[in-house]
């Protein structure tokens, strides 16, 4: 099970944090700091896994962003990397060549996409196409609503 999913910029700014286990705000802050420091300070070309507390951190860097997940020791590391990659691909297709700024100005959209990919720390959908379709449909519903308001 994925314990939490973080998106951290190279400067250490948190761009997304999704928690699948409940922690207090204080703990969350501490964990984000600790985890992002560990991942950011690692030279490239090393393996993408880190042992941390009773968990494992699986992280991957895409351009200036670090996608970090924390999983149970027994979880499959490679499949977690796949999940991260899938998330990145969906983001990429949704925003069209995604960059950090997209994620800053539309951080809520990133959350929506993640919610279609994972629930309760487990993967719910394995098809990128299906996720994209669902998100665009929901966006359409939103648009409709706003249009109605306008009228």
């Amino acid at each position: 099970m994925i314990q939490f999913f973080l998106l951290v910029s190279r400067q250490g700014k948190c761009r997304l944090s999704k928690w699948y286990t409940t922690y207090s705000d204080k703990d969350k802050k501490k964990m984000i700091r600790e985890v992002s420091q560990m991942c950011l300070s690692r030279p490239q070309k090393l393996c993408n896994f880190l042992e941390w507390r009773e968990y494992k951190l699986i992280y991957k860097r895409y351009a200036s962003l670090f996608f970090i997940t924390c999983v149970d020791k027994t979880d499959n590391e490679l499949i977690t990397l796949e999940v991260i990659h899938q998330f990145v691909e969906v983001l990429d297709r949704y925003f069209g060549n995604v960059c950090e700024l997209d994620l800053i100005f539309n951080f809520h959209k990133a959350y929506y996409i993640l919610d279609e990919l994972l629930i309760a720390g487990e993967q719910q959908e394995t098809s990128k196409k299906a996720i994209l379709k669902l998100i665009t449909e929901q966006d359409a519903v939103c648009e409709e609503g706003t249009d109605k308001d306008m009228q």
Binding site: S17, T22, S24, H108, Y111, V141, G145, T146, K148
Partner: peptide, 20 residues
Amino acid sequence: PGFAQKRLGYLGASVSFNDE
């Protein structure tokens, strides 16, 4: 009632609510 607002509301709850 609006989906767009509801969506944002649920987002706010997911990121901020905890056991307390």
